[in-house]
Amino acid sequence: MVTREDIENIALLSKLFVDEKDLDSLTEEMQKIVSFADTINSVEVKSGDFDNINNLSNAFRKDEVKESYPVGEILKNAPEQAEDHFLVRKRA
């Protein structure tokens, strides 16, 4: 059973605000999806050895320095910036 508390908890983890008025309908929606997901729990399956999709291993990079991006590029999309830093103002 998905509870209102579950939704509040996962919303906090997801950094999403859920309106108090939407909490019940969202709980109900989530319950539906969870029930759908639950269908897998009716299947018996031996513990599969699923690793990664093509069973790849050891994709490594050599430890060689490449030039970093200019700070102007790094900050180009920042909604706010100051003194070459990304900035989050406190606001009120």
């Binding site: 999309n77 909604p79 606001r91």
Partner: peptide, 20 residues
């Protein structure tokens, strides 16, 4: 999260609130 790129909420109070 509104820090490095894209949309950022206009009104908020503190970092956590801004991100949410």
């Amino acid at each position: 999260d509104g820090i490095r790129y894209g949309y950022k909420a206009e009104h908020y109070n503190g970092t956590h609130d801004m991100i949410c």
